[in-house]
């Protein structure tokens, strides 16, 4: 079974990958309104994620869900940075596992607000 993690793209995030190779990989939901990228996860990396983050789950499609928000934010940063959906982005995230865990521990009380005009 192939595993993957969905990276959601709002306009802000989409702008950061626009014009790169990644743009071809974008998938659409809700009539094209919601864009996302699916990052592949190997068996080995899936095991690592499950070991490091005990909230993580695998759904029936093979999507890894319920990882901390800090994990998902870093995953997007890695994707935008490395311009790939390959295994190295997950490795890049896992290289920062301590930092992510520290942020995740605070997530029940603090989450940074998006920088939009209100």
């Amino acid at each position: 079974m192939a595993y993957f993690i969905v990276v959601l793209l709002d306009d802000n995030r989409f702008d950061k990958i626009k014009g790169t190779e990644l743009e071809k990989e974008v998938q659409y939901m809700f009539g094209g309104e919601l864009r996302c990228l699916n990052v592949e996860v190997s068996e080995e990396l899936k095991e690592k994620i499950l070991k490091e983050f005990d909230t993580a789950r695998i759904d029936s499609r093979g999507a890894i869900t319920d990882v901390p928000v800090a994990f998902l934010r870093e995953l997007f940063n890695q994707v935008a940075d490395k311009k790939t959906l390959g295994g190295e982005v997950i490795e890049g995230v896992l290289a920062k596992v301590d930092e992510i865990k520290e942020l995740a521990a605070k997530e029940s009380e603090f989450l940074p607000a998006p920088d939009i005009e209100v």
Binding site: N12, T65, R73, P114
Partner: peptide, 14 residues
């Protein structure tokens, strides 16, 4: 809720 928590603006159809 996951989308909101991540700071991703939901599309207007949602």
């Amino acid at each position: 809720r996951g989308m909101v928590a991540e700071g991703v603006q939901p599309p207007a159809i949602i």
